[in-house]
Design a protein around this nucleic acid. Structure first.
Lengths: 347, 347
DNA sequence: CATTTCTACTGTATCGTTACAGATTGCATT
DNA sequence: AATGCAATCTGTAACGATACAGTAGAAATG
C-alpha cells in the first residue's frame, strides 16, 4: 500500500531539498495527487480528516502551488496588469497608486505587473498585448477618455478591469474616480471667500473625461459665487516650462487674474514659478487653489490652498474592484468616487 | 502526409480563433512540433529553408510563446522582481526607477513584477519569498546596507540581482550607485564658495551604506575648504514634521549653521519649512545644497542649490545589469556609479 | 440477498513547451 | 553492395496542476 499510485510508473521519488509539489504531499500522506489537490481546495468529496492531514503536511512543507502549473492548466494567471503612462506625473503619483494596489493584493495570490507605455504612442498597444497574450486576469488603466477605446475593447473581450477615472458614453464598468467637479466648485468658493473674483483655470487636457468634470464644477462655481473666468491657454499635460511661460505672460497682462485653480500638483509648481517671474506673489496679488496627490505643496508654498487626492486609496479601491470583477461581481457595484479633503493650510 | 504526427493521436485540430501555439504552426507547415520549436530558436540542426518558412508562418499568426508552458518546462519565469519599500520616498523616486527599468525590459521578454514591502518589517521576507517560490529570474533591491543580508542570501542561492547602492563587506555583486561622496564633497564646496563656514548635514539613516559615503565626502569637504560641522540630530528617513521641528530648533539656537547639506529631495522640503519657521531665510541667513531625484526643488525654491540624481538612468543600468547577470556575465563587470549633475540654478 | 446510492478516493489526459533519444534520407566512402 | 556519416526531422516524456470519468467499499434500500 505504500508508495503506490503515481509513484508506480514515475521513476522519481520526491527529493527532500526540492520545492514541494502536490506529488510530495501525496507521497507523504500516502494519498493520490488528485486527492491532495482537491483537499487543498476544500472540495466536498474529500473526508474531513483527510483534508486536515493534507493541510498539515502542506503547511509543514511550506507548499505553495506552482504558478506555471496552475496557469498552464487553468489559464488563470494570478496577475493584475497595471498600465502606466511613463510620462504620467513627475511626482510620485503612480508609486502611491502601485502601493495602494499592492496593499490589497498582498492578501491574495495576485501579483502586480507593470505594463508601461508612452501616451504619445498608441494607448491601445499595451491593452491589446495583454488581451492577445492572455497575460493577466485583470487590468487597471488610467487617463480615461469619455469614449475610451480601451474600455470598449476590454469590455468586449470580457477582461475584468477597473479604471482611474470615468467614461461618459453609456459604458458601465468598474471605476474609481476623484470628484473633480466638487473640487473645482469648492476651489472657486475658497477663492471668492478670499475676495477673489477674476479666476483662471489650469485644466487637464480636453480629451480626458475629467476635463468636463473640472469645467462644470468650475463654471457652476463661478456662477454660484459670482466670479468670472480669465482664460488660460495651456493644460496640465504641457511641459512645466511652457506652463510657467504662459502663466507669466498672463500675469503680466492687463487683465491678470486674482485667483487660479490648478488641476494638478506638479503643474501648480510651474504656475507658481510663472507668477513669481511676473513679479507677483501668492497671498498678496492673487490666490491659488490646487489639487495635489502627494502632500508637498503645503510644505513649500503654504500659501497654496490645496485639496488632497488620495491616490493610494484610489489604488486600493481599484484593486478591490478588479478582484471583485474577476469573482463575477457586477460592474455597477464596483464604482466609487472619493471626495477631496481640504487639509487646514500651513505646515 | 497531411495532418499526421501529433495530430494523429490528439483529437483536436487547431481552431482558427484561438491563440496560436507551436501545434498550430506545426499543423500549418506540416512539420513536427519539436521541429517548429527548434526552428524558432534557430537551432543548428534545422534546415535554413525550413526555419524561414516556420518564421514566416509564426509571424503571420502572431505567435507568441505561452509563458506558462515555457516556465513550467524550463523554469525560466521571464520575470524581474523589483522589491520596493512602500514607505520609500514620497516623491516619484520609485516610479522613475520603474520606468527606467521598463525602458530596458521593453525590448526583451522580461516583465517587471513589483514586490512591495515595508521597511519597518523584515526586509528579508520579500527576497525569501522570491527565492522560495522561484518566481523571478532576477531581482532588483534598494536601501542597501554595508553587509546586507539580502545580498548575501541572493548570492548564496545564485539568484541574479542588482542593487541600488553598494555593500561594503567584500561582497562582489552588480550594482548601480550614485556618487554620494562626490555629491557631499561638492556640496560643501558650493556652500564655502558662498562664504558659508558652519555647515549642518541632514544625513541618511546610518544603517544604509551610503551614510558612510555621504559622511566621508562631507568631512573631507569640511577639511579641504576649512569649514566646520554643526550637528543635526535626525535623518532623511524621519517623518517630515520631525525634520522640520528639529531644524527649527537648530536654527533658533545660538550656533545655528549658515549652510546645510541635505541628502534627499523630500527632506529638503521639510528642512526649508523648519528654516522658515525659525524666521530665517535661504539665500540670506544661510544656503542649502540638496540632492534631488525629481527635478522640482528648483521650481519652488530656486534658492536651493541642487544636485540631480538620475533615478531613471539608475533603473536602466540595473535592468541591464540583471539581464547581463542572467546571461552569465561576471558581476565585476556590472557595477556602475553615476555622477551628480549640477543644473544651473534658477528657472 | 441483490441492488442502488453514497462517500471517499484515484488514474488518465491535458494545458504548451522543450530535453532527449531516436529516425529517415541522401551521399560519400570502403 | 555494404557501411558510415552528416543533415534534418520526429515522437515521447516530462514540468505541476486540475477536469473528468471513473472505482472501491460501505450503507441504505427493495
Amino acid at each position: 500500500m505504500e508508495n503506490k499510485g503515481n509513484f508506480g510508473n514515475a521513476a522519481s521519488t520526491p527529493a527532500a531539498r526540492e520545492r514541494p509539489t502536490l506529488k510530495t504531499i501525496a507521497f507523504m500522506t500516502g494519498l493520490g495527487v488528485t486527492t491532495v489537490s482537491r483537499a487543498l481546495k476544500d472540495a466536498p468529496d474529500i473526508g474531513a480528516e483527510t483534508k486536515e492531514r493534507v493541510r498539515m503536511v502542506a503547511r509543514q512543507l511550506g507548499y505553495q502551488p506552482n504558478r506555471a502549473g496552475v496557469r498552464l492548466r487553468t489559464g488563470k494567471t494570478n496577475v493584475i496588469a497595471l498600465v502606466l503612462s511613463i510620462d504620467e506625473e513627475i511626482m510620485g503619483f503612480s508609486s502611491q497608486m502601485v502601493f495602494g494596489i499592492s496593499e490589497v493584493l498582498s492578501g491574495t495570490p495576485y501579483h502586480i505587473v507593470i505594463t508601461p507605455h508612452s501616451h504619445s504612442k498608441d494607448p491601445m498597444l499595451p491593452v491589446r498585448y495583454i488581451l492577445d497574450t492572455g497575460s493577466a486576469d485583470g487590468v487597471i488603466i488610467s487617463r480615461i477618455e469619455p469614449d475610451d477605446p480601451r474600455v470598449r475593447l476590454l469590455s468586449e473581450r470580457g477582461m475584468p478591469f477597473a479604471t482611474h477615472g470615468r467614461t461618459d458614453a453609456g459604458l458601465t464598468h468598474p471605476f474609481h474616480d476623484f470628484d473633480n467637479e466638487a473640487f473645482a466648485h469648492k476651489a472657486v468658493e475658497k477663492l471668492v471667500e478670499r475676495g477673489r473674483r477674476r479666476i483662471a483655470l489650469l485644466q487637464p487636457p480636453s480629451k480626458l473625461t475629467y476635463y468636463a468634470h473640472i469645467r462644470i464644477g468650475f463654471q457652476t462655481g463661478l456662477h454660484d459665487y459670482g466670479a468670472e473666468e480669465v482664460p488660460l491657454r495651456t493644460n496640465t499635460d504641457a511641459p512645466l516650462a511652457d506652463i510657467r511661460d504662459v502663466v507669466e505672460v498672463m500675469m503680466r497682462s492687463a487683465n491678470a487674474p486674482d485667483g487660479i485653480v490648478c488641476s494638478a500638483g506638479s503643474a501648480a509648481i510651474a504656475v507658481n514659478a510663472g507668477i513669481e517671474a511676473a513679479g507677483k506673489a501668492l497671498g498678496r496679488d492673487l490666490d491659488m487653489v490646487s489639487k495635489q496627490s502627494v502632500p508637498i505643496l503645503n510644505w513649500i508654498r503654504p500659501e497654496i490652498i490645496t485639496a488632497q487626492e488620495d491616490v493610494r486609496h484610489a489604488g486600493r479601491e481599484m484593486a478591490k474592484a478588479v478582484i471583485a470583477r474577476i469573482d463575477g461581481v457586477e460592474p455597477e457595484l464596483l464604482q466609487s468616487i472619493s471626495q477631496p479633503t481640504w487639509p487646514e493650510s500651513g505646515r
